[in-house]
Every structure is written in structure tokens, then in C-alpha cells.
């Protein structure tokens, strides 16, 4: 016997219903059985302090077995980072290696399309983009100078170079916007050809990274005004620098494969 379900709505009901039902059952278990309360379950009356007992027994101290006790006994209160490096810095390096793979997918598509033989349009403005590249490299340099300034506690130069980096980054975005508009006015768009497809998506994602960087940079500047960064504590600037240099390097690769190798 064939029992046919009529529509997708019934499926939504089925899948959603299962999910909801299981959710309710699991939620019920969590509330009633586990009591959403993993800490209190092993209250041993003997370790309750009088104050805690008066509080209805909701306060307890953990009780360890003899083995656990002996492992913990020789321990230390806090452990330094195993690699002697801040979490933020290590985390940023790790994250950037992931970003490399993201751009590899986009660049891989572009290279594959070029291999198929898709033609590069003649309207690419190498000189203008060369200027843009120079501007972005300069902004990386000013970020280095900003970090250097804050490490020497020169707050005035620090703010100055941060501001300079913002202006240079914004100038790069402006140049990119002009280049996009120029290409579009010549009929090169994301839908016109394979080149357009890969070009606009690739440079678009890069531009997005620059804009995110600019937002981060502006927040850093506001924090700098507040005096958050000192010679001892400037990891926020250093981590941002890593990101910004990465975005810069990605652009150099893009500039090379789009504009220089035609």
C-alpha cells in the first residue's frame, strides 16, 4: 500500500516535529533529572559549611578522591602559556592560515579560468592599481610605525600613524571603487564573462577584508584615544597588524596574477 505524503509542508511538520519533540524530551530530562545543576549534585553533608546549610544546602565545596587529591596537591595556582606566546597572537596566526585557504579557492578558480583561455579585458588600469598597491603597502608601513610608537610610549605619534593608516586604507578602497566603476562602464561586469566573474568576486572579498580591517582600525583608534595601549600592553595593535599585513600580502598576490601576468 502506497501512502503518499502530499506536500513539503507535511515534511516540515515531520522533521520539525521530531526535532521539537526530541528537544522537549531532552529539555525535560535536563530540567527534571539533571536539574540543570551539575555543581550541586554531589553535596556531601559533611563538607557543607554552616552558612551553606542555612542557605538550603545550595552551596557546596567539591570533594576530591585521595588520588585526585595527590595529583592536585603538587600543583601550581596558575600556569604560564606553554609556548610563551600570547593566545591572541597564536590565534591570529592560526586564523590567517585558514584565510589563506579561503583565498586559495578563489584564486584557484581564477587561475583555472585563465587556463581555459578566458581573455583578460584591455580596460584594466595597471597604473592606477599600481598606485593602489603602493598606497596599501604604505598603510602596512604606518601600522608598523604605530606599533613602534606605542611601544616607545609615544602616544601622539601612535594616534597619528593609526589615523594615517585609516586614510591610506580608505584611499585604497576609493581607488578600487573607481577601478570597478571604470570596468563596469566598459561592460566588464560579474556576469559578462568568466574573467568578470572571478575578478569581481576575488577583489570583492579582498575589499571586504580591507573594510573589516578599517572598522577594526577605527575601533583601535578610539581605544588609543582612551589610552588603552601602553608599552607593556599593546597586543591589540600587534594582532591587528598581523591581520593588516596579511590583507596587504593577499592584494600583492592578486595584483600580480590579475594585472602583471596577463
Amino acid at each position: 500500500m502506497a501512502l503518499t505524503l502530499e506536500s513539503g509542508a507535511l515534511f516540515a511538520l515531520l522533521a520539525g516535529g521530531t526535532l521539537l519533540l526530541t528537544g522537549l524530551v531532552a529539555g525535560g530530562i535536563a530540567f527534571l533529572v539533571f536539574n540543570l545543576d551539575r555543581e550541586r549534585r554531589y553535596v556531601d553533608e559533611s563538607v557543607l559549611t554552616p552558612a551553606a546549610a542555612a542557605d538550603g544546602g545550595s552551596v557546596a565545596l567539591p570533594r576530591l578522591s585521595a588520588v585526585s587529591e595527590s595529583v592536585i596537591h603538587s600543583g601550581v595556582v596558575e600556569a604560564p602559556p606553554s609556548l610563551g606566546m600570547s593566545h591572541n597572537k597564536l590565534g591570529m596566526w592560526t586564523f590567517l592560515s585558514s584565510e589563506i585557504m579561503f583565498f586559495t579557492a578563489l584564486i584557484g578558480a581564477y587561475v583555472a579560468f585563465r587556463a581555459i583561455g578566458d581573455l583578460v579585458p584591455e580596460h584594466l588600469n595597471v597604473v592606477l592599481s599600481g598606485v593602489g598597491t603602493f598606497v596599501l603597502i604604505c598603510s602596512s608601513f604606518t601600522v608598523v610605525l604605530a606599533l613602534d610608537a606605542v611601544q616607545e610610549n609615544n602616544q601622539q605619534n601612535f594616534v597619528f600613524y593609526l589615523l594615517g593608516s585609516i586614510l591610506l586604507g580608505a584611499a585604497f578602497i576609493g581607488i578600487q571603487g573607481y577601478e570597478w566603476a571604470e570596468l563596469m562602464s566598459h561592460g566588464v561586469t560579474a556576469t559578462s564573462s568568466l574573467f568578470g566573474t572571478a575578478f569581481f568576486v576575488m577583489t570583492g572579498f579582498h575589499g571586504l577584508h580591507v573594510i573589516i580591517g578599517l572598522v577594526w582600525l577605527t575601533l583601535t583608534l578610539l581605544r588609543a584615544f582612551r589610552g588603552d595601549f601602553t608599552p607593556k600592553d599593546n597586543m591589540g595593535v600587534e594582532t591587528f597588524g598581523l591581520y593588516w599585513h596579511f590583507v596587504d600580502v593577499v592584494w600583492i598576490v592578486l595584483f600580480t596574477i590579475i594585472y602583471l601576468i596577463q
Binding site: N35, R38, E39, R40, A52, V59, L61, P62, I72
Partner: peptide, 11 residues
């Protein structure tokens, strides 16, 4: 009880 032992409450 070690220094800094948590005094816990219901979550």
C-alpha cells in the same frame, strides 16, 4: 580546601 576554591551555586 585550597585558596580560591569555588563556592558554587545552582546554575
Amino acid at each position: 580546601t585550597y585558596p580560591g576554591s569555588a563556592v558554587t551555586r545552582r546554575a
